[in-house]
Design a protein around this nucleic acid. Structure first.
Lengths: 119, 119
DNA sequence: TGAATGTATCGACAACTATCGAATCAACGG
DNA sequence: CCGTTGATTCGATAGTTGTCGATACATTCA
């Protein structure tokens, strides 16, 4: 960019960029959260959990709907948990999962980035 | 909450799941969109594009901010384009990228899944 | 205690991805 | 025409990830 001595070249290429909209650190952190949603199985799991009437879903009821093995589902639930999208709670032998609305809201807000474009 | 540890536990593991909140097809399609956001470089690129005052950003001005090689940036822009998050427009020698607000809005709506939980 | 069941972890493998250098394509200017 | 510049594509490689079977852990029940 900015070739050597642009004489007539000033208007054509680009309007000046906006200010730094997302630094490297923030983007890395957010990317991890979005990465948790980048798998169909995890999306379905989260969807099932979030849409549960009681707000909680037993892990034992999550393997069948997604059609994956129990270790696989456990792995995906761990990813969702580490991304802060769900929380787990032991209830006797079982583990109940619950969505974290605040985290979902945070991601929603990031996707509203185009709103920040002034003028 | 409520009473804890019932003795004859048989059916009480889980409250019945909600209805199918996200079928396999939808989740696959959505996962692809989120996957496009699951990389820090792509997030920054989209952020820069979306926050541009003019609404468009030349590809030539996108390599420096993310600190990646030009082919790499081109690759990421292609991913964003195929995910429907940005559109490209040739302007002479340069290519200008523009965010797609509708797609961002669609993803925001998906993240509002917990709102669909009735009761 | 031992058996049974629900979860989580481990080990391994196949598939995918990010990254870069080099080559190729496209468009403009002299 | 060529030469320059921007953008895409290609080939290769290192790292990541989804998946499952086998295993280990935890809890409840007999």
């Amino acid at each position: 960019m900015t070739t050597s001595l642009p004489l007539l070249v000033d208007d054509l290429c680009c309007a000046p960029l906006g200010l730094d909209p997302l630094d490297a650190a923030s983007s890395a952190q957010l990317a991890q959260a979005f990465k948790a949603l980048s798998d169909p199985v995890r999306l379905r799991l989260l969807s099932i959990i979030a849409a549960a009437p009681s707000g909680e879903v037993c892990a034992c009821d999550l393997t069948a709907p997604v059609g994956k093995s129990q270790p696989t589902v456990s792995h995906h639930l761990k990813v969702l948990r580490e991304a802060g999208l769900v929380t787990s709670r032991k209830h006797g032998t079982w583990v109940h999962y619950r969505a974290v609305p605040e985290q979902l809201a945070a991601l929603r807000q990031v996707l509203a980035m185009e709103m920040r474009a002034g003028t």
